[in-house]
């Protein structure tokens, strides 16, 4: 290959990298610069004094507090619903299933991971109507329905995270306890899971991030523009990503728009911190395994 061609390829790789980096810096920088003027306690708590809102649950108007609280409860409920199934299925795939069964199950989990979130949202929406009609007329689009649909969405992330963490453990470790007479379950729960705990936690954090950022599911299953802090599982709720979407088309004055930028910055930071922590935890596990 000629020198000119090689130079062209090198140049193309540099240009691509610069283009990508430039675009990301533009996106993040734009949000940062536009939200700088509103970076103040008032962005979150409005006119309510922060301590009042935190200690006495004083109602907050004109701040992001209800949306942040809504997202918080939504994520806790969704991950709480998905966690037992995700962890169980992950452990089952890593240490109990093999051959055909394992391939089949992974295929289904990959399919589930690929399902667009709006389809999951539509599923949640029709489930609500179904339940409303046949189970109880008190069921409407609500926090619980959103959390249930989100649980479907993050299930594959939890499963994959758990499975990978366990499968990355060295083979020798897998054999020690059985050689000493431990049963398979004793081996899994006393030796393997504790050793892979940071990797598993990494997967959980990743799915928390997915729950916090998803908009398509909750916009069909109960997120609204103003509801205050969620009062019950069966009520509608506010959420940070939905707020951002809502403001982008419905803002009434520049001030509201600036609050939208503020919300985007907060969501960006939350997701970045969650993802970074998850990567660090996975790295920790990988490094420890290499040390053995």
């Amino acid at each position: 290959m000629r020198v000119a061609g090689q130079r062209a390829i090198t140049a193309w790789s540099w240009i691509s990298s610069l283009l990508l980096t430039g675009s990301v810096v533009t996106v993040v920088g734009f949000v940062l610069i536009k939200s700088l003027p509103v970076l103040h306690w008032r962005l979150i708590f409005g006119r309510t004094p922060p301590l009042e809102a935190l200690w006495r649950w004083a109602p907050v108007t004109g701040g992001l507090w209800p949306a942040i609280g809504g997202t918080f409860f939504l994520v806790i409920t969704a991950v709480g619903l998905a966690l037992p199934f995700g962890l169980g299925a992950g452990i089952y795939l890593a240490d109990c299933a093999d051959g055909r069964l394992k391939r089949g199950l992974t295929l289904l989990f990959d399919v589930l991971a690929g399902v667009p979130s709006i389809v999951v949202g539509l599923f949640g929406f029709s489930l609500t109507i179904f339940l409303h009609r046949y189970l109880s007329a008190r069921i409407y689009p609500s926090l619980l329905i959103s959390a249930l649909a989100l649980a479907f969405l993050v299930l594959p992330y939890l499963i994959r995270g758990t499975q990978e963490a366990l499968e990355n453990l060295p083979n020798a470790l897998r054999l020690i306890a059985p050689a000493l007479g431990a049963t398979r379950m004793q081996n899994i729960f006393r030796v393997l899971v504790p050793k892979a705990l940071d990797g598993i936690a990494g997967g959980v954090l990743l799915s928390i991030g997915r729950c916090a950022e998803d908009t398509a599911v909750i916009m069909l299953t109960g997120a609204v523009a103003s509801a205050g802090l969620p009062k019950s599982l069966l009520g509608s709720f506010e959420a940070l990503p939905f707020y951002i979407y809502y403001i982008s088309s419905q803002y009434r004055d520049p001030q509201e728009l600036q609050q939208g930028y503020g919300a985007a910055l907060i969501l960006l930071l939350v997701c970045a911190v969650l993802l970074a922590t998850s990567l660090i935890l996975k790295n920790l596990l990988a490094r420890r395994v290499r040390g053995w």
Binding site: S17, L20, T21, V24, T26, V27, V28, F30, V31, K34, G209, A212, E213, T215, P241, I244, Y245, S248, G260, Y261, A264, L267, L268, C271, A272, L274, L275, A276, L279
Partner: peptide, 24 residues
């Protein structure tokens, strides 16, 4: 460094992309 940046990029919420898209 670029590898780390790309990993972090996977965490940027789509709604933020949309928001920046509308106004920029």
């Amino acid at each position: 460094a670029l590898h780390h940046l790309v990993r972090l990029m996977t965490g940027i919420p789509t709604v933020v992309y949309g928001f920046v898209g509308i106004f920029l």
